[in-house]
């Protein structure tokens, strides 16, 4: 073989081999993820705007097939009344499914309580829902891998895989999980994953006439929710648990638990 042919063949072989090696290389999921624009769902609640109408609770229950009259709900609204003496009175009748229409505040076994208008220093509503934490306690305690976090941050429950042991319901510091009375599995807010993944809004945020609830992508600097979380004074619930909640509140008081 002539030297020229040898070099030519060697060049062809090497280039051919390198192409086929490149084609055989397996795709690393992390590389694929980096190629996609990053997405991390987050939620913003403006408590100043909430008027306690409870349309969000009703919309959530209808949208997600939670029986209306069952005493469980994926989202609810709490009423806080703080008196001038510093007493905190709060209630959430039926999770505010029918809103707040009475001045009587339900104090469970001690009955209904009415605080005179002159006695009230502060009174406001706080909507609650799953915080879709960055380090969710409920997911860690699941013994069968039925509850999990997606790469875009939502915490979901696999209804086919859940054995209904209830560890996650006990593990959640925010009490957002419950036992679904019809499906007989653990259930919780999904951020309306079926709606937001298909370009929609969550049922609760859409039903809110006052814009008290908003969902957005925390990784997108132009997203109104991400902007508010970055530039405004927002708080989260029970920060001390280290769960890194991703539902942010504007106007959160220390009395709110």
């Amino acid at each position: 073989m002539k030297r020229r042919d040898f070099l030519k063949n060697a060049a062809v072989f090497v280039s051919g081999a390198s192409v086929s090696l490149g084609a055989l290389e397996l795709l690393d999921p992390r590389q694929l993820l980096a190629a996609n624009p990053e997405l991390r769902w987050g939620f913003l609640v403006n408590t100043h705007n909430c008027v306690g109408c409870g349309f969000c609770v009703k919309a959530c229950k209808v949208e997600n097939d939670i029986p209306l009259e069952a005493n469980v709900t994926r989202t609810w609204v709490e009423r806080y009344v703080i008196t001038k003496d510093g007493d905190v009175v709060m209630d959430t009748p039926k999770g505010a499914l029918n809103g707040f229409t009475s001045k009587l505040i339900d104090q469970n076994q001690s009955g209904m309580k009415q605080v005179d208008d002159e006695e009230i220093a502060q009174a406001f509503f706080v909507p609650k829902l799953c915080n879709h934490c960055d380090t969710p306690a409920c997911v860690q305690v699941c013994p069968v891998g039925a509850t999990y976090q997606t790469k875009d941050g939502t915490v979901l429950v696999d209804r086919k895989w859940c054995i209904g042991c209830g560890y996650c319901i006990m593990g959640c510091p925010y009490g957002v999980r419950f036992f679904h009375p019809v499906e007989h599995v653990a259930d919780k807010c999904t951020f309306c994953y079926h709606r937001i993944s298909n370009g929609g809004n969550t049922a609760c945020a859409q039903a809110c006439p006052f814009g008290a609830r908003q969902i957005g992508n925390l990784r997108d600097p132009n997203d109104p929710v991400a902007k508010a979380v970055m530039n405004q004074r927002v708080g989260v619930l029970r920060d001390e648990y280290g769960t890194k909640p991703q539902v942010f509140y504007i106007g959160l008081n220390k009395e709110v638990r």
Partner: peptide
């Protein structure tokens, strides 16, 4: 009444 029942909620849009 969800919105229009009068409640004294001084730190709320209500």
């Amino acid at each position: 009444l969800r919105c229009h029942s009068e409640l004294y909620m001084p730190s709320s849009g209500r």
